[in-house]
Write a protein that binds this DNA or RNA. Structure first.
Length: 196
DNA sequence: CTTCCGATCGTCT
DNA sequence: GACGATCGGAAGA
């Protein structure tokens, strides 16, 4: 299989639509030890200044959130405890919106992913945002990279048969924002994360 | 099966 | 100096 980066204008659609349309696309990492590909099966939208759960709530602009104010399609990596989380910057320039990539399904490079994840069962390799980054060996060094450029990019995928919509995960203490239906996943997929 | 807790570090106050 | 868009191991039911 040959994977090509998706067109840059893919990232110019509204954040909610982009979050939905990212489910079912491929995420490709051309690692020095070999190529790894997963199909994205779960995302969450973070709606910038208006969204209490977003890092950029109230247009908070710091070294960490700076990239969210840039052009759509940039990579926003963030460290949570011992884990790296991957985001896609969205919204027009100046609107700090982003989409968290929460889970994937291994497509290419199973041996490498198993090596980076340890000996766990395959369904536990990529069924959470920190696990996904670790399986693909993605680090903070991709902060500010663009999702259309090698060696880490989004490629057109097969899409999904049915999309499930629900509240986001792991954002308690953020008031009304806890209930917003900004989580999108492939319905019934066994590798969708189950934390809440 | 479920709940509980510690890891461990960049970022912000 | 405190906190967190998480994870996995341990302990309990």
């Amino acid at each position: 299989m040959n994977f090509q980066p998706i067109a840059a204008n893919f990232f110019q659609q509204p954040t909610i639509e982009l979050a939905q349309n990212l489910v079912g696309q491929y995420l490709v990492h051309q690692h020095p030890e070999g190529v790894m590909v997963v199909k994205i099966i779960e995302t969450e939208a973070y709606m910038g200044a208006e969204d209490r759960a977003a890092h950029s709530f109230g247009n908070r602009r710091t070294k960490r959130t700076e990239v969210m104010f840039g052009e759509p399609g940039l990579v926003y990596t963030y460290q949570m405890h011992t884990h790296i989380l991957m985001n896609v910057v969205s919204g027009p320039v100046g609107k700090p919106e982003a989409i968290l990539l929460r889970a994937g399904e291994p497509v290419v490079g199973h041996e490498l992913m198993q090596q980076f994840r340890g000996t766990n069962a395959m369904k536990n390799w990529t069924n959470g945002p920190g696990k996904l980054s670790k399986a693909l060996d993605v680090s903070m060094s991709y902060y500010g990279h663009h999702w259309t450029e090698e060696p880490l990019f989004i490629a057109p995928g097969p899409g999904v048969t049915e999309l499930e919509i629900g509240p986001r995960v792991g954002i308690q203490n953020t008031g009304e924002a806890v209930e917003y239906p900004y989580r999108f996943s492939e319905k019934g997929h066994p590798m969708v994360s189950k934390y809440r």
